[in-house]
Amino acid sequence: MNTEPLSCLREGQHARVLSITESGAMRRRLQDIGLIEGTVVECIQKSPSGDPVAYGIRGAVIALRRAQAASVIVQR
């Protein structure tokens, strides 16, 4: 099982959160939207330009910019 950043997910793929490399307020913000260890995330839809991407997180659809998604390490 290899790990990768959330930003590498393709549309329709699911993955489980392992850790977040972001720190400070942004880390807490990501945790607040439900990205804690063990959360299952689905890559739902990329925007017209490919960045940001809409993810399914705990029943909500939330768009993250690539920079933030890259800081979330997941396992498929």
């Binding site: 913000r29 990501l30 939207i33 659809v61 939330i62 768009a63 910019r65």
Partner: peptide
């Protein structure tokens, strides 16, 4: 740019 999250 600061990071941001946007709920749809």
């Amino acid at each position: 740019p600061s990071g941001f999250t946007l709920e749809l």
